[in-house]
Design a protein around this nucleic acid. Structure first.
Length: 318
DNA sequence: ATAGGAGCATGATACAGCCT
DNA sequence: AGGCTGTATCATGCTCCTAT
């Protein structure tokens, strides 16, 4: 009854084929750019052009007036503008080449970071890679863990609190153990509000802190949440709950999110979708994750296998 | 068996823009 | 003005998964 890897993969390909045009909101060009990159990944080795995407998105459409047609044309150009930007900002990490002839194609030889890029791309399209959802979300947490370790000074502590956690018992017990590790006390009333039968993590996936040898609770602490789904906005409150459970001492924890989407807007030196990102959050998005992933964590993950399968699939030229 | 969590789909509602 | 249409937002519910 076990579904094989190949079956799952084929189901994903089918999911992708069934979507001729994803219906994100018009302004979400990033998401469309991701979809275009996926199209290039699953095309045969010839790559794709703006015209191919035009056919895929609007092939059936009868235009009543030229204005609408122009509007769609500009929309497509804006998407490819984002892709041109990505070529520049991701440099060697970018797994695609976008040539002078304006063909988007997968590079022939991909290094680990190129594959990690593809993994993040796939993880941000869980509706398509639905069959691998569990693998992709747990692997994303593992990747985020490794990134945070690389990002923080070498003596800092980084722990997984979600999947693969070393903390045991129900949520209340996990939080108590964590408080102990951090030399903090818990707010008993707030903690009593957590169900005894809640065995999970209450929205904290990873935690990192800069330790001191003393037992004083005054320290820099990062509370991290990993979110693959498109609704990462709505998960931003999750780590805030820990400000109720734990009595932080003279410092505020740094709320942090890991997101597989590409959010850096180079020209503005800010984020795309900036209005979705709350105050006082540190964001690790696609570009930053690639910048700080330096060890071999990724190569041992299921998502690495999935990426390789995609590449193999593309080269077989179906 | 059960609870909790992740993520998505769906449907109701409100609203802006456009046509007549 | 009235009505049509596409779009955005929100709450709800569904499915799948995991830990106990």
């Amino acid at each position: 009854m076990a579904v094989s890897f190949d079956d799952k993969f084929n189901a994903c390909i089918q999911n992708f084929t069934n979507i001729s045009k994803p219906d994100y909101t018009k302004s979400e060009l990033n998401y469309y750019a991701d979809f275009v990159e996926l199209t290039a990944l699953f095309s045969n080795q010839d790559g794709i052009t703006l015209g191919d995407i035009q056919d895929r998105f609007f092939g059936e459409k009868d235009y009543e007036n030229a204005g609408k047609r122009d509007e769609d044309e500009i929309f497509l150009q804006d998407i490819f503008q984002i892709i041109s930007e990505r070529v520049l900002i991701y440099e060697n990490d970018y797994p695609f080449s976008y040539t002078e002839s304006e063909i988007l194609t997968l590079k022939p030889d991909l290094n680990t970071n190129n594959k990690l890029y593809l993994s993040l791309l796939i993880s941000s399209k869980l509706n398509i890679f639905n069959e691998f959802r569990a693998d992709l979300t747990t692997d994303f947490e593992t990747i985020s863990y490794s990134v945070l370790k690389q990002f923080l000074p070498t003596n800092s502590k980084v722990k997984e609190f979600g999947k693969n956690t070393e903390y045991e018992g129900n949520a209340i017990n996990k939080i108590k153990q964590l408080a102990d590790d951090l030399d903090l006390t818990v707010d008993d009333y707030e903690l009593s509000q957590v169900g005894e039968r809640n065995n999970q993590e209450r929205g904290l996936d990873i935690i990192g802190w800069l330790p001191f040898n003393d037992k004083c609770g005054n320290k820099i602490i990062l509370l991290c949440q990993c979110a693959c789904g498109k609704q990462y906005e709505s998960k931003q409150h999750d780590t805030r709950r820990f400000e109720n459970y734990l009595k932080f001492y003279k410092t505020k924890p740094q709320h942090t999110m890991f997101i597989p989407y590409s959010l850096i807007n180079v020209r503005a030196k800010k984020f795309y979708h900036s209005d979705y990102i709350e105050k006082e959050y540190l964001i690790f998005e696609r570009k930053r994750i690639l910048e700080y992933h330096k060890d071999d964590t990724f190569e041992n993950l299921e998502s690495y296998k999935i990426v390789n399968k995609c590449i193999e699939f593309m080269k077989s030229g179906v």
